[in-house]
Computed example of a mutant assay.
Amino acid sequence: MKFRYANGVPTSTENATANILKAAADPNVISFGGGLPAPELFPVAEMKAATDKVFDKYGRLVLQYAQTLGYPKLREQITDLMKDRHVDAEVENIGVVTGSQQAIDLVARMMINPGDVVIVEDPSYLAAIDVFNSYGAKLVGVPMDEDGMKTDALAETVKKYTKAKFIYTIPNFQNPTGRTMTEERRKELVRVAKEAGIPIVEDDPYGAIRYAGKKLPPLKHFDKDGGVIYLSSFSKILAPGMRLGWLVADKSFMDHFSLMKQNADLHTDNLTQYIVSQFLLDVDLKKHVKKITDAYEHRANLMLELIDKYFPKNVHHSNPEGGMFIWVEIPGGVDTDELFKTCIKNNVAFVPGSAFFAGDIKPGTFRLNFSNMNDEQIKEGIKRMGKAIAEVVDN
């Protein structure tokens, strides 16, 4: 049978995300590839206790169909989480989604027609790039530096692409670079977008995991006219397997979003929503997140120390203040796709930078994840990578 696929279906079945997860699942490979949280930090006992309570109190109810935008109690609790992030939101502004990845997909489906321009940081989150491409978007990348997206370059970009559908950005501990946008640039980005009449999609899955520097308000904090659509997730602060995230947006946007969400899956898993809601009632979330951030700070500092020790001296890397990623740049035009193949042969993995660029690919770049490996794995893995990079650079 010959299937007549839609234009949005990739012609190649090569899947960068699947390859990352496959490498991460191989027990023989030390994988710095996938952005996986540390499983030993998952609150298993607390989640089990919450699940038992939910079945005891709401057994039949949680197994029934539910409201499209989510369990009202959980949405109320999310408004409290948002207050802690310096964003005032009402329940009507909140939608619960099946991981923030679903929010990216639904927002893209709502906003993008084939040929529409979407402005992204360059480099940017590879799974968002894939989603935008699947709806036929023309991606326009804006360069970054250590302080995040260059807003002067953004100002020039929006002058050229006046009908861009939205600007997609990850201000906190960006994926893939680990960089954090400064407060001044956050204000400037919101100003530039407002003047251009272009919405912002702010993706903030990592913002709660800050272990250095000053806590900064999200772009949504500076939004006075509803132009920022804010996305976040429980995946990094609780557990990704639960597939639970949320979206915060203007009421008029949420009315349309509710229809799209209903068409996609009717509603996010009802049982999971009740369990997370009960967990938030029973457990000190800030204390739990502090445990995660302490562990990630240690692993990040260890990896950075070992990169400086084992990688060639002309190699540059980002210095994240939180999150899960370090961005590495090797001067001299090294092909990191080929380096990846060499490293896999030596049972160590990373993600080549080629997967993250909307525009021209910058050679010699790759992403490392430090959250999912223990100290010994980090030590051995970085040592293996340093040897492989030295061989490539010397050749």
Rank of each mutant, 00 (worst) to 15 (best):
A6S: 06
I78R: 09
K163N: 14
I330P: 06
D335C: 13
A295P: 03
G197L: 01
Q262W: 10
L244T: 12
V29I: 15
L238H: 01
I361R: 14
Y125G: 00
P72S: 13
A295T: 15
P39D: 12
K383E: 15
V393W: 01
A49W: 00
Y310D: 10
K73G: 00
T177Y: 04
F350G: 11
R75H: 00
K163S: 12
G332Q: 05
G70A: 08
F357M: 10
K251Y: 11
Q67V: 03
S12T: 14
A349I: 08
V29N: 09
D204T: 04
A128C: 02
Y274F: 15
L21R: 15
I167N: 10
K73F: 00
P10K: 05
D337N: 13
Y206T: 00
V289T: 15
M385N: 09
G227K: 12
I344L: 15
W246S: 02
Y206L: 15
M144K: 10
D88A: 08
D265I: 15
R299N: 12
G136P: 08
A127E: 06
N263C: 11
V348P: 12
V117I: 13
V131R: 03
G353T: 11
I119C: 10
V190I: 10
A24R: 10
K291V: 02
T182V: 05
A358K: 08
H298Q: 03
E202P: 10
I200H: 09
N369D: 10
Q77A: 01
T13L: 07
F32T: 06
A300Q: 07
H86S: 06
I361F: 07
V315N: 09
L63Q: 15
A358E: 10
P363M: 08
V140K: 05
E184M: 12
K309S: 04
N93D: 13
D294M: 10
F166S: 07
V96Q: 11
V228F: 06
T336P: 05
F132H: 05
Q64R: 08
K341Y: 03
I378N: 09
W327H: 09
G323S: 06
P39R: 07
K160G: 06
R4G: 01
N346W: 02
Q102W: 07
I170P: 02
L266R: 14
A239G: 11
R185Y: 01
S235I: 00
L41I: 13
G386R: 03
T157S: 03
S124C: 15
G227L: 12
E46L: 04
H298K: 10
K83G: 05
L189S: 02
Y274T: 11
D284E: 14
D152L: 09
